[in-house]
Design a binder for these strands. Structure first.
Lengths: 232, 232
DNA sequence: CGTCTCATTGACACCCTTCAAACGAAGTGG
DNA sequence: CCACTTCGTTTGAAGGGTGTCAATGAGACG
């Protein structure tokens, strides 16, 4: 039985519940308690601002409160692969070893809770449930990246886009519509395509009646079934 | 006799030592102690035999003693993406949730130690270092899969192949040569290419003097520097 | 020696990229 | 309020890298 295929299913043994909590909006001291039971510092980043850089000392783990974040890797000549988009409630910046393997940037203005890794590791030594939650989180990311590999290695442009849209629709709950907080260029670098191909695939899906595009950032899922089929 | 790795070593964030140990080759009872400090059952699989299937209950975690294993995901129409190759000493089958997200098969005849997940989880509750090692392992896999995404999304056929060869050369210690235990088809499905493109890229690298191919399974790295450049 | 499997090579088609231009929305200053 | 700029998106034309289809070659094995 396909019990675990759904990443949003956090009820069973798997992922701890990381839905966004009400952010602590007191002015002044910005301390927030996160689902791991730890306290971090609230920080804000402007659109396109770097949150951490590749190979930078990995001092913190982050939980996103608002906005969107992307992580990516870049080749020497500028080719870029976005490895993941993070939405409110998501945790990012988990890294093995002392430095990050990806860079993280703000896709939109965003606020995060930064949790010192040292504190996390210290707590994890005594509290196995912390370590367990981190482990589950890492495995959740691993599961997603395996799916992403299948997409990048084996799917056509339209299939990739359909997959992306369905994933977004699932993660941004709304009624048969997705308000994309992400530019075409970022979608392209996420799906291993060019911006032009993303645009063309978008109009192709529209022409085939699977989606409608009132504006370029607003996608109506007019044929969810066909989209799911395409997405694989 | 293998002993559990030094606890002081495990306090650093890095990867636990998972080098192959001498397999217990007594006939009869096949119990082996693995680096996580747990006991598992030794099993053997023939070439192309399935070790576990996608969406199958994830009962065990495996450590490879000998041979090569691949994990993969498949689309309905048969398109396949190999997510990773595992070599002796590697651990695979770690999964979030109750079932596997990939299938695992033996690339060659192989022997593994199968460790019951229940036992692992139970121990992890009391022993934080176990959970910590599992976490490090998951993050190690995540790091590799991020690299893999960059390869699948943004690199050319020759770059992919060069990357693959350098990775293999690193993991199979030998002097400027790689004895591939893996078929062209498996390489293709790992790199998101077709078998023909892999073959063509192989000869192209040979024509350019980066490698030599005494046999199709034996690769001599005649220009390591250029290969590393290509690999990115 | 024949068969089977796997790897290589060739010819051609096609999907996606590249290069280029036009379009549209948002913000600024006159 | 309207030109003007800027940035992001869309569309077009042409080219290239990779896939597809097909045939040949090379080892392994009975």
């Amino acid at each position: 039985m396909h019990t675990v295929s759904d990443p949003s299913n956090s009820s069973s043994i798997g992922l701890p519940d990381l839905r966004p909590t009400v952010p602590d909006s007191r002015p002044g001291l910005d301390l927030t308690t996160d689902p791991l039971g730890l306290t971090g510092v609230k920080m804000t980043f402007a659109r396109n601002e770097e949150i951490f850089g590749e190979a930078e000392p990995a001092a913190c783990v982050y939980r996103l409160l608002s906005g969107v974040v992307r992580t990516h890797r870049i080749l020497a000549d500028g080719r870029r692969q976005i490895t993941e988009f993070y939405l409110p409630g998501d945790v990012f910046g988990l890294q093995q070893g002392v430095s990050h393997s990806t860079s993280a940037e703000a896709v939109t203005d965003c606020t995060v809770v930064a949790i010192r890794r040292g504190a996390l590791a210290e707590r994890a030594v005594h509290d196995a449930s912390i370590a367990h939650k981190m482990c589950a989180l890492a495995l959740h990311h691993l599961h997603r990246s395996e799916e992403h590999m299948l997409v990048l290695g084996r799917k056509t442009a339209c299939e990739r886009l359909a997959w992306f849209l369905m994933d977004m629709a699932e993660r941004i709950p709304a009624h048969d519509r997705v308000d994309l907080p992400i530019s075409r260029q970022d979608i392209a670098d996420f799906l291993g395509l060019t911006i032009e191909t993303v645009s063309r695939s978008m109009t192709q899906l529209q022409d085939e009646g699977l989606i409608a595009l009132p504006t370029c950032r607003q996608v109506l899922l007019t044929d969810r079934r066909a989209l799911l089929d395409l997405a694989g």
